[in-house]
C-alpha cells in the first residue's frame, strides 16, 4: 500500500532537509501552475528534469508514473485542438484543428509534466513520515499532521484486513459479476473494514490516554539545515526567480 518507490535510494536530493523540499515543491508548483508562457514553462520543465536527474531515480518506475499522468493529457490532445476557436491549421473530415488549440494543449503538457517531475524529485524522495513532521514544524495544524501520521501508520493495517477479507471471499468461491449479490458482498466487506477501523481507533486512543498523551508527538531526531541545504536553497531560489522573470518580464524591465 505505502510503496514509497522513490524514497529509499540515496542522492543529494534525498539528503536535503525535508522542510526545504516541501517549501521548494510548493513554490515551484504554484509558480508553474500560474505561468502561461512558453519560455517560462520550458525552463520549468528543464529545471524539474534536472532535479529528477540529480535525484538519480529508477528510470523504469519514473517512466511508468509519467505514462499514467499523461493519459489525461492525451485525452486533451484528442479534444482540445478541435474545440478551441482560432485559426484553422488542419482539417480532418468534419473536424478542424486550430493553431490556438494545439498551442494550448502543448502548454498544458509542459505544465503538467514539469509539476509532476518536480513533485517526484522533491516530495516522493522524502519518506512520508518526514513530510508529516516537516509539515508540523512548518506550522500546519497539529490535528492535520496527526491525521497524516496516523494514516501512514494504519493504512497498512487496514490493507491487510482487506487482503484477509478478499482471501476468505475467494475461499468461498466468490466471483465478482454484475449482480446484486456481488454488490452486497462488497458492501458488507467495506462495512467490515469500517468496523475494524472504528474499533482500532478506539483502542489506539485508549492506548494514547494510558501513555499520558498531551496533544504532541515527540520525535527523537530533529531536522537541521546544513551547508548543502542553504546552498541548494539559494540555487533553487535563483532558478525560481529566473522562471518568474521569464513569465512576467515586465516586472523587472
Amino acid at each position: 500500500m505505502l510503496d514509497e518507490a522513490f524514497a529509499d535510494s540515496d542522492s543529494l536530493i534525498h539528503r536535503l532537509d525535508p522542510r526545504l523540499k516541501v517549501i521548494l515543491a510548493a513554490a515551484f508548483s504554484i509558480l508553474a501552475a500560474v505561468a502561461d508562457r512558453f519560455p517560462a514553462l520550458t525552463f520549468a520543465l528543464i529545471l524539474s528534469s534536472g532535479l529528477v536527474t540529480l535525484a538519480r531515480l529508477p528510470a523504469r518506475a519514473l517512466f511508468h508514473r509519467l505514462l499514467l499522468v499523461n493519459g489525461f493529457v492525451a485525452l486533451l490532445w484528442l479534444m482540445l485542438p478541435f474545440s478551441f476557436p482560432g485559426e484553422t491549421l488542419v482539417r480532418i473530415g468534419p473536424l478542424t484543428a486550430t493553431r490556438e488549440g494545439l498551442r494550448y494543449a502543448l502548454l498544458i503538457t509542459l505544465k503538467t509534466n514539469a509539476i509532476i517531475l518536480a513533485g517526484i524529485a522533491l516530495l516522493s524522495t522524502t519518506h512520508l513520515t518526514d513530510i508529516g513532521r516537516a509539515l508540523g514544524s512548518l506550522h500546519v495544524p497539529d490535528k492535520i499532521t496527526h491525521i497524516l501520521l496516523f494514516m501512514l501508520r494504519y493504512l497498512g493495517v487496514l490493507d491487510r484486513e482487506y487482503v484477509h477479507l478478499s482471501h476468505s471471499m475467494a475461499a468461498r468461491c466468490f466471483r465478482p459479476r454484475t449482480n446484486l449479490h456481488t454488490y452486497k458482498s462488497y458492501a458488507h466487506m467495506v462495512g467490515m473494514l469500517l468496523l475494524s477501523s472504528y474499533e482500532r481507533a478506539e483502542a489506539v486512543y485508549a492506548a494514547m490516554l494510558c501513555r499520558g498523551f498531551a496533544g504532541k508527538f515527540h520525535s527523537v531526531g530533529e531536522f537541521s539545515m546544513r551547508g548543502a541545504d542553504y546552498a541548494f536553497g539559494a540555487a533553487a531560489a535563483a532558478a525560481l526567480l529566473v522562471m518568474a522573470t521569464l513569465q512576467w518580464d515586465s516586472l523587472l524591465f
Binding site: K143, Y162, A201
Partner: peptide, 23 residues
C-alpha cells in the same frame, strides 16, 4: 482531539475501499 485517531482510521478504510473495483 479525541476524534483524530477515528477520523484517520476511517479515512484509511475509505482509502483502501477506493481500490475495490466493481464490475
Amino acid at each position: 482531539y479525541d476524534r483524530v485517531p477515528q477520523v484517520a482510521l476511517v479515512s484509511c478504510a475509505f482509502f483502501v475501499a477506493s481500490f475495490i473495483h466493481l464490475p
